[in-house]
Design a protein around this nucleic acid. Structure first.
Lengths: 131, 131, 131, 131
DNA sequence: GTGGTCTAGACCACA
DNA sequence: GTGGTCTAGACCACG
């Protein structure tokens, strides 16, 4: 698993980590049920403190993206279907993103095709790599 | 101009402010060329520190949404057309948002129609200015 | 005996096990004097470490819910009547639960009827043994 | 505010802290809107690390029992009405508590009156102390 | 060997 | 001056 962090960024490392993992799952680089590296492994690999990885994992667990098994560490999970709270958050986020895009001269057409492209890329991801 | 801030939120106030203004411009509540309140005015109106508003304005200026004239204060501007830097940022953001949405069970169809709805709402905005 | 464990939960497995057995006794699914599976049997059946079952049994014995005879294995026992220590613990627990419930908007009425329902369900339990 | 921690207990300090605060709010010792001590203050007062208090506060914030304002620290809040998830959790907890109590020889009558007593005690708490 | 918890001390972003 | 973040290193509970 390749995760790049930007230590100079002002978004906290654990957030970057959380985001990167979500995207990796979305892309299919991390399959459902697949195990993630140990907190300590990942921490060392990234040159980051254990607590930082811990926090990222805890958030992902809380959001339903992964489950932590005392015996075997963390594994990818499918979260529950979209709850109302999430949809609200999504709409708020999109309103901002779209406002910005529109002002930057990106029309509805272009925006939609951009989204389509991303959806396609995700769907085409490394599906069940070896099977 | 009505801007609502959530002091209990964990997104910094100056970011909330910056976002709210971008959305307001997107919706047409703030027209191109329109003047914004003085930093001090807005700060007082919102019950916020002057530094906070200052920071938000500075970011907006930097992003091309605002032009600041020492004589006339701040005014809304159309930013330059989508530069490469911005497009990259947009794509990164959308990849995250879409990954999350897809995992939460929101399909391409639903997502696209949600976007369409927001585009429509923005387009319908300017009329509401004077009511 | 059907016991379901949640390996993803953050309450330790031996605690889950102990709780499940207490509830099973409460419901009458396990009758007074009834023998429980061997530690090894149960461990294998649940796919769990022997130590884990051992720990759960030890706690239950300590609490008076189980008596362990080296020759016949473990058997269900009625614990001694409410000792002062237990009542204190109960009151502490209930104070927390009720505080939480009250703050979450669950009134005394609702709470009491919820308790009544559970008492009724427990009382109705023993019959279901053989079905 | 008087909070007693048991450092020898095996329930984590931050959980004990969280529980104690919930009870304090339930009892009315902490009123709605009232400010809590700074993380650092409380940490020093309790002889505990800052991170520990931080974690307790974060959980309480997450549960809706308090809100954290970047400018003024933490303050007590009323959580949203009982959601379905919470009610399920409550029922599970109560089933365990009641099973235990019943086996310990505490009948429905006694249990209910115990609950009533606690409800009454909470309601009678230091209501608006000085007003 | 895994994650969970805790510590002491530090720096930074925010207001 | 507030909380947020991060670190390095430690001990413990769990299985």
């Amino acid at each position: 698993m390749i995760l790049t962090l930007d230590f100079k960024s002002d978004t906290p490392i654990y957030v970057q980590l959380r985001n990167a993992i979500v995207v990796a799952i979305g892309k299919g680089e991390l399959q459902d049920g697949e195990r993630l590296p140990t907190i300590r492994q990942l921490a060392q690999e990234l040159g980051v403190n254990v607590m930082t990885v811990n926090k990222a994992y805890a958030i992902l667990k809380n959001e339903g993206f992964l489950s932590i098994d005392r015996r075997h560490g963390a594994a990818v999970t499918r979260p529950d279907g979209g709850d109302a709270v999430y949809k609200e958050k999504l709409e708020r986020e999109l309103t901002l993103v779209i406002s910005e895009a529109a002002l930057k001269g990106i029309g509805r057409q272009e925006f939609q095709s951009l989204c389509s492209g991303i959806f396609a890329a995700l769907a085409a991801g490394p599906q069940t790599l070896t099977e």
